[in-house]
Amino acid sequence: MAKIEYRNAKLSPLKIKLVCRKLAIADKNLHYHNELVFILAIKGSAILQINDNQISISQGFFCLLEPYHLHRLFNIKQENFVYLSVEFPLALALLISQNKKVYQTTMKFLQQSLPLIYLSESVQKKVLAYCQWVKKQDDYLLNISLIGFLSTLYIDQLKKLADYSIKSSNWLSLQYLQTFHQNQAPIKTTAKQLQLTPVKVQQAIGQLTNSTWQRQLNQVRLRNTVALMIFDGLSLNAISRICGYHSEANFCKQFFQQFQQTPAAYRQQLVQQDQQLVSFEALEILNYLLTYYQQPIKLLQTTIALKLSPTKFQQLCQTYFHCSFKVLLTQIRINVAHRLLITGKLSVFQAAIKAGFQDSNTFTRVYKRYYQTTPQVIKNRRKFNHD
């Protein structure tokens, strides 16, 4: 059996790690971690091993690797394999999970079996362009928006496909541990689901992870408590109970052993680092504008769609984006257009229209104000660099 390597990227709750990687040689170890990872195959082919299954993948393959996926990649005939990796904390997946019901719904989605998903070439380009834009901005609201976009894309594909068939009791034992971590007796629930004894389930976890059931369970619970700490409306006691700790004393003890500080101190650290999400309304504004920027949307139309008064809407824009609705929408459109010019083959007029501008003259005037040059200059520069 391959060596098991646990990786802890220690990402802040609202941060992401976005990188393109080239697989020159096969991984020797199976990896797993607390974070989640979207994978998009960009070039070549490879074998992806997840737990005790192997899957052939090639350009366009798109999947979500979760904490219970022990994985590694193999080359095929020494072929170079290039893939995009978007690593993110559970906090960004939970998003609005501020109560037990929504939390459980999110957890249920994350436990679905791995399907074989392939994206069309046009969708691949859209994903890569979006990722490139977000990486340059380094803004937590854009990070959330990107994860929301990728998750929606993933869910839409899930609806079209049957689940990847999994028969391994080892794999399912680890998956159900994640599913039933809130229960008072999760091992008994898991054993009942798999028609195994608790001892057999413990053995399955040990075989797959080289670790114990209790250690894995505690890791899942602590990971999830940290994820929920970004929501300032939840008390530490509520968070611990949502994640399966039925004793506050035990929660504090386990948390201190893992992080060498109390839950309260850890949360205060998030506040100081501006890693708490205090407005879902601001997130909804950004997501709405990123969805409909190509259309001639107006302030009143947007406030009605989001069920906010114009005054409240403008206050949110000023507080969280430090500008008006009109300026925020223009910034989104000009960023999209700039990205299209430097990464695509569109003309200036085509980029302007695709970004939501009504004509190229207005676009050129606004573009020059933001970038101190004209879009045609940028377009010509790109053409020169590629000739």
Rank of each mutant, 00 (worst) to 15 (best):
Q54V: 13
Y154K: 03
R267C: 09
V278I: 08
G344M: 07
A352D: 04
C243I: 12
D139H: 12
Y245V: 14
S145H: 05
L70D: 01
Q124M: 14
L161D: 00
K22Y: 02
F38N: 00
S12G: 03
L329T: 07
L172E: 04
I16P: 00
C323N: 12
S56K: 13
Q358I: 13
T373E: 10
L299E: 13
L18R: 00
Y68S: 08
L270C: 14
T374V: 08
Y371K: 13
A204S: 09
V199I: 14
Y118T: 09
N287D: 07
P186K: 07
L289N: 02
L48Q: 06
L283S: 08
Q203E: 14
R333M: 11
F180V: 06
F61D: 13
P263E: 05
G233D: 08
L177F: 02
K3M: 08
K159A: 06
F325D: 04
R365V: 09
T225G: 04
V226K: 08
Q254F: 05
F255M: 10
A249K: 14
I117S: 02
S347F: 05
L194C: 06
L150W: 00
L177P: 01
E281V: 12
L172C: 01
I47G: 02
I144P: 00
K108T: 11
L328C: 07
Y292V: 12
L300M: 14
R365I: 10
K188S: 07
Q132P: 01
A9D: 15
L84T: 01
T152L: 08
Q358V: 12
S324D: 10
K379T: 04
T197D: 08
N75Y: 02
L36M: 11
L286C: 02
T330A: 09
L277Y: 02
N80Q: 08
S145I: 03
L73S: 07
L196I: 13
A191P: 03
Q59N: 13
A305N: 09
I147Y: 00
Y292I: 06
G356W: 07
Y245R: 13
E284D: 15
L328W: 06
I55G: 01
E87D: 04
L290E: 09
K100P: 02
V82K: 07
Y292C: 06
A282D: 02
Q272L: 15
D27I: 03
